[in-house]
Amino acid sequence: MSRLVCPTAPRDRSARGRRLVLAVLSGLVVCAACAACVQFPAPESPAPVAFAVRPTPTGAETDVPHEPAPSTDSCNATASLRPGPMPEPAQMPTGSTMAGILGHGRLIVGLDIGSNLFSFRDPMTGDVQGFDVDIARAIAQAIFDNPTSVEYRVLSSAERTAALKNHTVDVVVKTMSITCDRLQDVAFSAPYFVASQRILATRDSGITGVADLAGKRVCAARGATSIGRLQQLQPRARMVSTITWADCLVMLQQKQVDAVSTDDAILAGLAEQDPWVELVGPRLSDEYYGVGIPKGEDDMVRFVNGVLDQFRVSGAWQRSYDRWLSIMGPTNGPPLPVYRD
């Protein structure tokens, strides 16, 4: 390989010297140009490394300790207080719980805006809608003569009881199952809906029932009664808890859990969002949803039961079911109330 050497300029100031200087300068230009043209091989770069991290939803917990299964039989949990005479809207009895709610101008309702079909935010309008929302609006209509006099407080399943005990909400209408344990801390209306616990899995999972959940990761929202019941039915299931049911769906889609188990009404809302998941297996239990009310507010329990009676008899219950829950198939209608007085 030839090499270009750049000469040093001589100091002769004669004509001959000037010619030499010009020659030297020309050589320097050539040297510079040549240097610019020399290409050295670039160092080898390491091969690119790509990997995907599946983020775990905030607040998710794995290997949830065993919880007691919920009970409804030992205390006749679904029996409630008989409705009293219904006052005219906006004319609540003086000193009553309803009069206090009327006085502060709005019904404060605890619910979840991530429970598709029961309570969710419409992405187009921003309005909170669903079956539970229709129940809340019926209570507001009976108190204020205005179904929109409602303030919604978003609660996780685990926060419902505390919100009622602390009186940060007037009622909870959030797929809340009536159980003997919960009745120690809060009061309930008569049931307004009956759901059944089932299993949600991907279509290629091979899971067909509770027996197939041995050693599998099963998701449920923290505070749900479905955790204790599933642990009773399948002690070898590895329970994973999240803050919301939507988080369970995300973990199922990302293969971080193998199944989700809770009420079929909630699972149907998750399945509607993803065609690759399905409800499998027989019903595992019956879940009776009631309106949660602070303990000791018997007048409010009777009032809400009166509202629910009107909701059933007027056909509003069936219209709400047809609008939001028809994906679950035909219904035998609303549950009939049982009163203990």
Rank of each mutant, 00 (worst) to 15 (best):
P89F: 07
S314Y: 11
M251G: 06
A268N: 03
C6V: 15
V260E: 04
M92E: 10
T331K: 08
D112H: 09
R11N: 10
P10L: 13
Q318N: 15
L325K: 00
S26C: 13
A136C: 08
S326L: 01
R312L: 15
G223R: 12
S226V: 08
D145R: 04
D127R: 15
A23T: 06
V109T: 07
Y321T: 04
G315E: 05
T78H: 11
V280Y: 05
P294K: 09
V260N: 04
C75R: 08
D247P: 06
T78N: 01
I207S: 05
F193S: 05
R203W: 10
L284Q: 10
P55K: 05
V133W: 04
A60D: 12
I266M: 04
F51V: 03
D274A: 07
A50Y: 04
G223E: 13
S196A: 14
P191R: 03
T148L: 11
C219H: 11
V257G: 00
E159F: 09
F144D: 09
L28Y: 14
M86T: 03
H66A: 09
T62F: 14
Y289R: 02
Q91F: 08
T78Y: 00
G329K: 11
C6H: 06
D181T: 04
R319A: 14
R182A: 12
F188P: 02
E297W: 09
T56W: 14
E88K: 13
G84C: 01
S74P: 09
I227Y: 02
V173C: 08
V38F: 01
G228R: 00
T94Q: 14
I135S: 00
T202G: 14
D73C: 14
Q234T: 07
D322G: 01
S196T: 07
P85N: 12
G290Q: 01
V304K: 03
A15R: 10
P48H: 13
G206F: 03
T175E: 13
S115L: 07
L270V: 01
P87T: 15
Q273G: 01
A316I: 06
P89Q: 03
A47K: 13
P46I: 06
L164I: 13
G315Q: 00
G95K: 05
Q39H: 14
S326Q: 13
I293A: 00
A42Y: 14
F120P: 05
V24N: 10
R137Q: 08
A190K: 04
S80C: 12
S261N: 07
G17F: 12
D63G: 13
R203V: 13
G228K: 07
V171R: 11
T208V: 15
M251W: 03
L20R: 04
L102F: 05
N116Y: 04
V240H: 02
G333Q: 00
P48M: 03
V150C: 01
G281F: 04
L28K: 01
Q129K: 15
F303N: 06
A77Q: 03
G126H: 01
V38D: 12
G209C: 09
G95F: 04
N305K: 11
M239P: 06
G110Q: 08
D299P: 11
Q253K: 11
R153S: 12
S80L: 08
L107V: 12
